[in-house]
Design a protein around this nucleic acid. Structure first.
Lengths: 228, 228
DNA sequence: GAGGCACGTTAACCCCCCGTTAACCCTATC
DNA sequence: GATAGGGTTAACGGGGGGTTAACGTGCCTC
């Protein structure tokens, strides 16, 4: 389920949007001005940020620029009544990913959100990383053409890592994707990672699962050598 | 420089587009039907695929679906005269990332291409200084192409310094970014800087981390000589 | 219903990395 | 030579991360 943030000062419009999105199965927080929106962004994880341009406190363009310079790379979709070419160009210059002119069709907004969130769960049938290949339709995972034996949780872990690849995934995110909100306070994740490593790495040349100290794990082909 | 593929059967339009894109500094191959487009995609790397829907041999929607099921996750931008809501929804259902209705402004096409490319392949967020490169997405740091081994705190220090570069950062600011309000009253920062120096400078030609006496540290390629 | 199997969970253990600390060293400055 | 700012080194202790085994549960088979 996608988690959205709507930053919009028109309360009527915001309410309508949030309600409609809920029907479509999308969670959506709402901030009514730029500063508050920024606060939300720092506070919580969102898959997509829906951003009006005309906002009190901090306008949408500045907000977008700011989070980009902060290194926050979340997908941003600008929603605005400004339909001039120059407005759009400015939006993209500020670092937005998409630009939708009001009034727009709600269903178009929804599909664009999904496209931005890269949640192609329904679309992508095959995930790969190096010589590792995961086939979602027949639920098989291959390495160098050999079938891997994966337990259900190992499978889910690997899928999560593959979808994120080459991005690293935090321990937190992995735990949430496995157990949702009730994360066990044991070392369960460690054991699952261990099992997954055994299944994916054992017998093959280079390891694909790497740990990122103090953060989590990455799936990627081994790259450069350390000096010395 | 971006590398695009345009799949479009209207040869006049295609020519115009390719020429305009060249002026804007974007390379663009052209395929005039779906099968040929598919062939190009398999053959070569593209940052973004511009896709018409009405195509001979293999229509755009099917083509898009097919590459998605093949696991090819390249950004696709559909360019079409079909402006009905249902057409757009179908496009996104087929797995496109963006949808632009003809006629469109060429400059909008260009900025959308950049936005798409940045998100997909360029989702990789990098910070660099000279031959030092920090990859924030997969959390690796390279110098002269060699992987650096950094502890979590070394990583945070380096990130802070890179973000500020070429400006100097005060000791105070560094300590706050590491420990927030409860800064230890020992020489911990000194040791961390020392370790970071060892990791970043050792074995390489010129040092990158310089101390600013009485203030803090800078990350800079060439040492700035202070006049006496 | 008994046994076997696969799987998730938990605890226990170990190792070594890493953060902290304190000490010492060097060098400039007065 | 006293002092202060900065650099270097080593010891220690905690904890992050890896590994293993035991246990329980559900499911399948016989």
């Amino acid at each position: 389920m996608l988690n959205l943030l709507l930053i919009e000062d028109d309360l009527d419009l915001a309410e309508t949007l949030v309600e409609y999105l809920a029907i479509e199965g999308l969670r959506c927080d709402h901030a009514s001005n730029g500063m508050s929106g920024l606060h939300f962004i720092h506070q919580q994880h969102y898959d997509v940020i829906l951003l009006d341009i005309n906002l009190p406190k901090l306008d949408g363009l500045s907000l977008c620029q700011q989070i980009r310079t902060e290194g926050i790379d979340k997908p941003v979709l600008m929603l605005t009544a400004r339909d001039q070419l120059e407005d759009k160009l400015e939006g993209f210059r500020a670092g937005t990913d998409d630009y939708l002119v009001k009034p727009f069709e709600l269903s178009e907004l929804v599909v664009r959100c999904h496209a931005l969130a890269r949640r192609r769960s329904g679309q992508i049938k095959r995930l790969t990383c190096g010589d590792l290949e995961m086939n979602l339709t027949d639920r098989t995972a291959l390495r160098e053409g050999h079938l891997l034996h994966l337990s259900p949780t190992s499978w889910r872990l690997l899928e999560k890592l593959l979808r994120a690849s080459p991005e690293a995934v935090s321990r937190r995110a992995l735990e949430e994707s496995l157990w949702g909100d009730n994360i066990p306070d044991s070392n369960s994740l460690k054991v699952h990672i261990f099992n997954l490593r055994k299944a994916v790495n054992s017998g093959f040349g280079s390891p694909l699962i790497h740990t990122v100290p103090g953060f989590g794990f990455v799936l990627r082909e081994t790259k450069h050598e350390t000096p010395h």
